[in-house]
């Protein structure tokens, strides 16, 4: 085997390991497998706890609660109650992992990764990309917080946008004729949103995470302080630009290793020829010291 192909294999292995972690996480969060074949959702104690990623609790496989749905449920209640429990869980996941939740644990992020593997026209760098990224903060502020707060019983993000919920609706509709009969203009709107995301995910890497996901926007605030972080050994960095070239979120990890946009996919770590980048709870220097 020549040197370049063995090098490619070395790079592929961690990428496969990453996808392995993503698939295991998606399976654990959707471990009610029989629900997929009966159209009945899980009603056990697991749903006392919110999962870290975007995974609709109405998905027949879901064994946990959706953090965004639970948060909006509190905010849009007839009588306002502060969501101590849900906010605590969100802060916990954020401060522990930051957007590593998006890169490793989110089933919808994993789905987009799989879609991007389909051979198709790819374009990750374009003019509007920089501006579209601000959309997710608007979605977080208006659809997840302000609208549910001002309009009782309206979880606006779940109702008008969440593609994970639409997928759940499709699966439930396959098994339940009464659900199929109730599908009207709102479902068609959500189906359109899902279709746009799916088609865009064939061209752009993780468009929902980049532009729309309010959960990613929230976790992004913690990327700099989260215990799971990117560590850059500046003394080892040769500024070759390989990391920024490899980054599909269009970040320059040699300048901003803990950017709010970084989902910890690890592409830059694998691309670095001098192993100056590392992600984890401890930097390699700290590990050596301990």
């Amino acid at each position: 085997m020549d040197k370049s192909s063995s090098c490619q294999n070395e790079k592929r292995k961690p990428a496969l390991r990453h996808m392995g972690i993503q698939s295991v996480a998606a399976l654990i969060q959707n471990a009610n497998f029989k629900g997929f074949f009966t159209g009945k959702i899980y009603t056990g104690a697991g749903k006392n706890v919110c999962v870290p990623g975007l995974n609709c609790y109405s998905c027949p496989g879901a064994v946990g609660a959706c953090p965004l749905g639970s948060l909006q449920n509190y905010l849009s209640g007839m009588k306002f109650r502060f969501p101590y429990y849900v906010l605590g869980l969100l802060l916990f996941f954020g401060a522990l992992l930051g957007r590593a939740v998006c890169g490793f644990l989110c089933p919808f992020g994993f789905l987009q990764d799989l879609l991007y593997l389909i051979p198709f026209y790819k374009k990750n760098k374009f003019f509007a990309d920089k501006f579209l990224r601000y959309l997710k903060y608007g979605v977080l502020l208006f659809l997840v917080i302000l609208l549910p707060l001002s309009t009782p019983l309206t979880p606006a993000f779940c109702k008008y946008m969440c593609p994970s919920g639409t997928l759940s609706g499709i699966i439930l509709g396959l098994w339940n004729s009464s659900i199929r009969k109730q599908m009207g203009s709102l479902f068609h709107w959500k189906l359109l949103v899902l279709l746009i995301i799916v088609v865009t995910a064939l061209i752009v890497w993780r468009p929902f995470c980049k532009y729309l996901c309010p959960l990613g926007a929230f976790y992004g605030f913690f990327n700099r302080i989260a215990l799971w972080r990117m560590h850059l050994d500046r003394s080892a960095c040769i500024s070759c630009g390989a990391c920024s070239k490899a980054c599909r979120m269009n970040i320059d990890p040699s300048k901003k290793p803990n950017s709010m946009e970084c989902v910890r996919c690890g592409d830059c770590v694998r691309a670095c020829p001098v192993k100056a980048l590392h992600q984890g709870f401890c930097s390699p220097v700290q590990k050596k010291e301990s």
């Binding site: 109405s58 749905g69 969440c162 639409t166 109730q182």
Partner: peptide, 16 residues
Amino acid sequence: SVLNKAVRICMECVGL
């Protein structure tokens, strides 16, 4: 309340 919401099909979420 998280459990109560999560064990029922969320009509808004699935687009109904």
